[in-house]
């Protein structure tokens, strides 16, 4: 009891700007096993949405887990999720805590 349970939350980011406007670092086989948001750029979709925060760790993108994926693979998934015309939003499952595998 009293241990903080790592809570995750689903953030829906509408594609309201021409860019997503975040930067991530980390991925499998690095000190940061899951991609962490290190920058949120003013005027980007993420900034407009207002629910993503620097420091949050991304667990899933549109329901696809990033667990075990190296940085470039995770980055490709996020880029494709923003590029696709199928959805006008991206769903990010994020957590505040550094989730170890």
């Amino acid at each position: 009891p009293g241990l903080l349970e790592p809570t995750s939350c689903l953030v829906r980011v509408p594609k309201s700007a021409s860019t997503l406007g975040i930067a991530i670092e980390g991925g499998a086989n690095t000190r940061q096993p899951l991609p962490r948001i290190v920058t949120i750029q003013r005027g980007g979709s993420a900034h407009n949405c207002g629910q993503l925060k620097v420091g949050q760790v991304i667990l899933e993108v549109n329901g696809v887990s990033l667990r075990g994926r190296e940085h470039r693979e995770a980055a490709r998934l996020i880029a494709e999720a923003f590029k696709t015309k199928e959805k006008d939003y991206i769903d990010f499952l994020v957590t505040e805590f550094n989730v170890s595998l």
Binding site: A23, I24, E25, T30, R31, T39
Partner: peptide, 13 residues
């Protein structure tokens, strides 16, 4: 396996 050299990779979107 030990962290590889590209561990500080950052990607902007």
């Amino acid at each position: 396996s030990p962290p590889k050299e590209y561990e500080d990779e950052v990607t902007f979107f």
